[in-house]
Simulated assay, not measured.
Amino acid sequence: MTLPIRRLPDKLTIDEFCADLAISRSTFYDWRKKGTAPRCIRIPNGALRIRRADYENWLTDREERA
């Protein structure tokens, strides 16, 4: 029996983003104000979403070289 592959959502909520990085929402909004947060999408209800690809690219851009 094969288990179904669980697909990750292609967009993250701000809470999911913050939980993944173990940061507060205020830190996220500080980064956003400074222009250092990943690109966001504003959906019709006003909430923000972050494309998983943008998040991954944002993380890669912050990697330190050894």
Rank of each mutant, 00 (worst) to 15 (best):
T2H: 11
P4T: 11
P4M: 07
P4R: 03
I5H: 10
R6E: 03
R6C: 08
R6V: 03
R7Y: 03
L8K: 10
P9E: 01
D10R: 10
D10S: 09
D10N: 08
T13R: 01
T13I: 00
T13L: 00
I14K: 02
D15M: 10
D15Y: 05
E16K: 00
E16R: 00
E16L: 04
E16F: 01
F17G: 00
F17E: 01
C18W: 02
A19W: 14
A19S: 09
D20Y: 08
L21Q: 06
I23N: 13
S24I: 04
S24G: 10
R25T: 14
R25A: 15
R25L: 09
S26R: 14
F28I: 08
F28E: 04
Y29M: 01
D30Q: 12
R32A: 06
K33H: 12
K34G: 04
K34C: 04
K34Y: 03
A37K: 01
A37S: 10
A37W: 05
A37P: 04
A37G: 07
A37L: 08
R39T: 04
C40L: 11
C40V: 15
R42C: 05
R42L: 09
I43T: 05
P44F: 12
N45E: 10
N45P: 14
A47I: 08
A47N: 15
A47K: 12
L48F: 11
R49Q: 06
I50Y: 00
R51T: 00
R52T: 02
R52P: 03
D54T: 15
Y55K: 01
Y55M: 02
N57S: 08
N57F: 04
W58N: 12
W58M: 10
L59G: 02
L59N: 01
L59T: 05
L59C: 09
R62S: 07
R62A: 02
R62Y: 12
E63T: 09
E64C: 14
E64R: 13
R65L: 07
R65D: 07
R65I: 10
A66R: 13
A66G: 13
